[in-house]
Amino acid sequence: MIERNLGLTIFCHAVLLLGAAAVCLPLYFAFVAGSLTLQEVQQTPFPWVPGTHFLDNIATAWNQGNFSRLYINSLIVTVGIVVGKLTISLIAAFAITYFRFPFRMTAFWLIFVSLMLPVEVRIIPTYEAVADAAGPLRWFADITGISWLVGSVTGYQLEAALQWNMVNTYSGLILPLIASASATFLFRQFFLTVPEELCEAARLDGAGPVKFFLDILLPLSRANIAALSIILFIYGWNQYLWPLLFTTDAEMQTAILGLKHLVPVSDAEPAWNIAMSAAFFVMLPPAVIILLMQRWFTKGLVDSGK
């Protein structure tokens, strides 16, 4: 549709430029602050031109926050979340779409219900469950008298053996975030669009369910998997509340938490230059992913919202 309307075009460009400026302004000032020395960052008025210490500040922040370790933690946790979520939701979607088994609808509704419970709502029960993962087993042993039996026969304290604490471990950081109802639904919707004939053809050729899943469904859903992994990567990398609750050991924290520790609190020395330069390398991985794979990312987001 070709149409000339100069006034409106100018207005639209102005709006978009303003929006882009509003997005860039905090980032630009963060960059300026990150390139100044401690004295320079405290001067009034605040300078508009970046200084020359950006790389120095990055190096200081990197060492001061122990980011070599935190970065690896973040990567492990993020990749764990992405792979875990994809695996679980793919398998779950496969099961509820292609199989007729007892309690299938129950399983479906259980997944559905978990959609209603973001981590923020269930922090206490989740913490309890993961901090003491063997608790239910111990309770079961206690109730049924097994622990008494074992205790009196062998003198062995079953309660002491049944301890499984995941605080400050990677599995503790990853597992509670893995279950994903929305990803399961996304794959279910997609599997429903796969033609029935494919499944029949595979069966005629003698392929079992596992072969059908691996050789036909997975290659077909490659686009969805790619789009979803981008979103999940950003989700995993940007997790804050759960790592904050669940890591007490500085060695096990994620990069986001490390950045938070560098931010000066009211009475401390205002080392904003260090914090701001750190903000840049902490947000680098998701930013790069978004810039490079924008098309996939848009598709993934709009699809998973459906």
């Binding site: 980032l27 804050y240 947000m283 930013a287 990312f297």
Partner: peptide, 17 residues
Amino acid sequence: SVILMPYAIAPVISGVL
């Protein structure tokens, strides 16, 4: 691309900025 950028930025980092 520019307006999409904040999606990559964690809420905490946005808060810090």
